[in-house]
Design a protein around this nucleic acid. Structure first.
Lengths: 347, 347
DNA sequence: CGTTAGCACTCAAGTCTAGTGAGTGCCAGT
DNA sequence: ACTGGCACTCACTAGACTTGAGTGCTAACG
C-alpha cells in the first residue's frame, strides 16, 4: 500500500464524517468533472445531515487543504492533497470480471519476445483504462555476454552480433577498409566470442594490440560494442494510447506539454522509476517534480521476475481519474505479466 | 515534380492574375491563419489593381473551387484544390543556409545502426519543420539469411539469432522441454545455419522429421522463425514530434483523431506508401483517403539506396502549412539520408 | 453543543441588445 | 476592363441584465 510522503498540516486521519464527505466530493467530481456542492454531497452520502452541516465540514476541509473552490459561489474540487487522502484510504478493489478475463485472454494468447509482449501490454493497458500507458523494460547493465559473432555483410562491412544472458541481442556495424579475408573474419569472430563471453557491458576488455587484420577487426568490433554501451544498457520504453492525452485534458497547451514529456523517453523512465523507488504506487499532481505534468496522476506497478524488479508499468491520466479501477487494472496486469514471465521466462 | 491527379473543373492553368491572387491568398493565410480579404491581396501583390478588381477575380476563383468563404462577410480561405494549385506551381526553393548546415552536421555526426539513424532523423525532421514526422524503413522481404545461430539461454530455453543480408538481426525464443545437451544444441545450431543460409523469410525449408533432440530443436527454431515472418518483413516506423500535432490544430477532437491515426503504424505506412506510389510528393486534405486526416497535408520524400527505394520520410501538418520550406527540408533530408546510406551502407 | 433552517450575498454563465468594422457584391461612371 | 462608391451582411465585442447554483453567516432548535 502506498505511503503518503509527509504532509505539512494535520496529517493524521480525518474524522469519519470529513472522510466520507471528502470521498463523496472526489467520487462526484470524477464523475461530473464539475465542482460539487454541499447538497450534492448530502444527497450522495448516507450521513443524513443537512447541506448546511456539510458546508461547515467543507469549510474545514478547505482550510486543511483537501478541497479548493474555483470561485466563491461554486462548489468544491479536490486538491492534490484531497486526492492523495482519497487514494491512501482506498480499499483495494478487485478488477471487474470482464476486464479480468480480458487480461487473462491477452496473456494466454500473446506470443513473441519480451519486447513484443511489453509493447502489446502497453496497448492493452491503454485500452483497458482509456489512459496513456507506459511500460518500461529494465536495462541490461548486469547481463553477461553469452555469445558474440562477427558476420560478414559485404567486402568491407561486418556485423558484430552479441547475445546477452537476459535474452537481448545487439548488433554493431564494423567497417573494415582494407578488407579481411573470409578466414580472417572467421578467426576474428572466434576470438571475439572467446574474449567477450561472460563479460558485462561495463567490463574492460584486453584487446590484442597486434597490427594484423584479425586483431584490427577485434579491436574495431569491441570498441563499437563498448561505444554503444550506454544506449544498450538503457531501458526500453513502450508508450500506448498517447491519443488519450487529447481526451484527458481540455487545454491544448496542457496536451502539448504532456505529449512533449512523453516524447522524452529518458524523462519518462526516470519519472516511473522515481515513483517506484519511493515505494508509492501513485503520484498525484505535483508530487512528482515534473511541472508540465502537474495536471496528471501517474499510477505505477512493478513487474518482477524471480523476485527482482525487471520493469514497471505506468498509467498516466488526469488527476481527476478513476483511481480505484485504474489501480486495480494496473495491479492485475502487473500480476499477470509477472506470472507470464515467471511461468515461461523468455518465451 | 508532383502531378495533380485529375481535376474535375477547368483543370488547366489559371490566367496569370488569378494565379498571383491565389498565391497571395495562400501565402497570406498561411501567415495569419485568418481569412484574407481583397484589400490585403491587393496590397500584397504587385498587380496594381484595386480591391474591387481583386474581388471580381476572387469570385471567379471561388466559383472554380480554389477558394472558399467561411461566411458571407469574411475574407477567403484556400480550399484543398487551392493549395493543390499552389503546390503544383511552386518553384522548388532551396533550403535555408542555417537548415542546410544543420542537416549536414547531423549526418556528419550521427552514429549507429540504420534503425537508430532513422529514428534520429525523424526527430531532426520534426525539429526542423515544427511538424510531426514519419520515417519509414523498408521491409526485409527480399533479404536472405547470412547466418543463423542457436544460443543456449538456460536449461530449457534457446535463442535463434538470425542475421539477414540487409543487416537486420532477429531473435526467436525456442523452448525445449526435454532439454538437450550442449553438444546437441551446438549440432542443431550448425544444422540451422546450413539450412537457412541463403533463404528468404518466404521460402519453405525442408526440416528433418527425425525424432531426436537435434531434429526437434531444428524444427522448433525454424517454425518460430517462420511464424514471426510477417512481423519481421514489415516496415519499421519512426514517428517524431507527435506533440506538434497539438500545436497544429485547435480542435481537441482533431488532435485526438490525428494522434489516433499515428498510433496505427500499419495505417501510417500504407498512407506514406500510397502517396509515394502515386508519384506525388504532397497529399493535401482529403486527397489521401483518410477521413480523420482531412485537415492535414502530408509531404513525402523517398529514401533510396543504390537506386532502389528503401524507405520514405513524411511530414504531417495542417493544410495551412509552409509548403515551400517544408518540402525543401524534406528534400534536403531525403538527399542527405540517401547519400549517407549510399556512401557508407550499413554504417 | 451540534445541527439546521433561513437568508442575504456572490459570481460564473447565459441571454439580449446594440455597435463596430472588415469584407462583400453590385453598379454606374470612367 | 477597371474602379470608386455604396448598401449590405454578419462575426465579433461590449455592456446590461437575469438566472441560479452555491456559499457563509446567524439565530433558533432539540
Amino acid at each position: 500500500m502506498a505511503r503518503r510522503p509527509k504532509s505539512p498540516v494535520a496529517s493524521g486521519d480525518l474524522d469519519a464524517r470529513k472522510a466520507t464527505i471528502l470521498q463523496a466530493v472526489v467520487t462526484e467530481h470524477v464523475d461530473t468533472a464539475a465542482p460539487v456542492g454541499s447538497s450534492a454531497v448530502a444527497a450522495a452520502t448516507d450521513l443524513d445531515v443537512s447541506p448546511a452541516t456539510v458546508r461547515a465540514e467543507m469549510v474545514a476541509l478547505e482550510r486543511e487543504g483537501y478541497l479548493a473552490q474555483p470561485h466563491t459561489s461554486a462548489g468544491r474540487v479536490p486538491t492534490d492533497k484531497g486526492y492523495r487522502y482519497f487514494v491512501d484510504h482506498l480499499e483495494r478493489g478487485a478488477v471487474g470480471a470482464a476486464q479480468q478475463t480480458r487480461v487473462r485472454d491477452f496473456f494466454a494468447h500473446v506470443r513473441g519476445e519480451m519486447e513484443d509482449v511489453l509493447e502489446q501490454t502497453s496497448k492493452l493497458l491503454s485500452q483497458l483504462t482509456s489512459h496513456t500507458s507506459v511500460v518500461v523494460g529494465a536495462g541490461h547493465s548486469r547481463a553477461t555476454v553469452l555469445s558474440a559473432q562477427l558476420v560478414n555483410l559485404d567486402a568491407h562491412h561486418h556485423l558484430l552480433v552479441t547475445v546477452f544472458s537476459d535474452g537481448t541481442v545487439t548488433k554493431h556495424s564494423v567497417a573494415d577498409a582494407p578488407g579481411a579475408s573470409a578466414g580472417e573474419v572467421a578467426e576474428a569472430s572466434r576470438q571475439l566470442n572467446a574474449l567477450l563471453i561472460g563479460t558485462t557491458l561495463g567490463s574492460r576488455i584486453q584487446v590484442p594490440s597486434r597490427a594484423d587484420a584479425v586483431a584490427r577487426l577485434v579491436r574495431e568490433a569491441t570498441s563499437a560494442l563498448h561505444e554503444a554501451a550506454p544506449t544498450i544498457e538503457g531501458e526500453q520504453v513502450y508508450i500506448g494510447g498517447s491519443s488519450r492525452v487529447a481526451e484527458s485534458f481540455d487545454g491544448v497547451e496542457t496536451v502539448r506539454a504532456v505529449l512533449s514529456i512523453l516524447e522524452q523517453e529518458l524523462v519518462v523512465v526516470s519519472l516511473i522509476e522515481d515513483i517506484l523507488d519511493a515505494d508509492v504506487s501513485v503520484a498525484i499532481g505535483s508530487e512528482h517534480g515534473l511541472e508540465p505534468l502537474s495536471a496528471c496522476a501517474v499510477i505505477v506497478a512493478p513487474v518482477t521476475l524471480e523476485g527482482e524488479t525487471v520493469g514497471a508499468l505506468g498509467l498516466l491520466g488526469p488527476t481527476r481519474m478513476r483511481y480505484r479501477e485504474v489501480m486495480a487494472t494496473a495491479q492485475a496486469v502487473s500480476d499477470e505479466l509477472t506470472r507470464h514471465f515467471g511461468g515461461e521466462p523468455g518465451a
